[in-house]
Write a protein that binds this DNA or RNA. Structure first.
Lengths: 140, 140
DNA sequence: TTGCCTGTTGATATAATTTTTCAATAAGGA
DNA sequence: TCCTTATTGAAAAATTATATCAACAGGCAA
């Protein structure tokens, strides 16, 4: 899994380094999306010397390679999820900020095709965020 | 238009102030979404003394009232659009960052209803972002 | 294996954006 | 008009992300 990413890096002419491996590993083993700083905490475990700056750089690189996906959060900072995990969309609770993934990408295909036809855009990815209140937070 | 917002503010127990009116006016007359600083520039025109901090506070308040909608942009900062304008979604060009609005909310209604039923979430708003390349940027 | 070239890194500084603090101000009811 | 208190604006602080640059290390060639 991580190996495939490292292989991809090499193919594209990037060097294989410990920091990059650590960041890739941290992201890929995530159960959920992580904020850059959280990625850093985990990556740190694999490569103690890794700096936060490199985490940012590597996440951007992984996004470019299609391995990571950037998520836009309600409160302004960014999160990243492994790309294959994020073929679903997310559901954010406005109160407790929990994020639930749900599937349903195929429902959007016709819409995307239509938009693409009308605007000339090549749509490379999409993000559907539903914001609301989870069952627990509705009771407040 | 602005009057309705002011009325809504009063109904909810908020005070009617020049800065709030200026921010509401700036946002409502926008052709497109604006970043907080852009809102400030326009609001400034209606209330020269208004500070950027108040713009942030008022935008948050307007969002709470359902008058403004927060938009999550690719590069991390936020933008706001009048709520009624933003019943469409947006299409972001990865290269030049231009944002196009497009309609199609009704297509999502069944999906939202289904998710709501399955998860127990009350979905209050949604955001669909398509990211890709605009016709001009495809040629690079 | 050794050495070299150059892509990468990490620390620091910097930038950009948003939030907090708090004294002064002004809205709106009495 | 007066009083209470929500609201404001300026400055400071916090947060998040990026730029700079000398030191380092990956990987190819010899």
């Amino acid at each position: 899994m991580v190996d495939e990413v490292l292989e991809l890096l090499r193919e594209r002419g990037h060097r294989l380094t410990k920091p990059r491996e650590a960041v890739a590993r941290a992201l890929l083993e995530a159960e959920d999306w992580l904020r850059p700083e959280q990625v850093w905490e985990v990556a740190h475990h694999y490569c103690p010397s890794v700096g936060l700056v490199t985490v940012y750089r590597t996440l951007a690189l992984l996004e470019e390679l299609g391995v990571a996906r950037r998520i836009h959060l309600a409160h302004g900072c960014h999160g990243y999820a492994p790309a294959e995990m994020h073929h679903g969309h997310h559901l954010v609770c406005r109160s407790c900020n929990q994020v639930l993934e749900f599937l349903g990408t195929e429902d959007l295909a016709p819409l995307i095709a239509q938009v693409s036809r009308r605007t000339g855009f090549v749509v490379e990815e999409h993000l559907l965020e539903l914001v609301g209140r989870c069952p627990a937070c509705q009771q407040t």
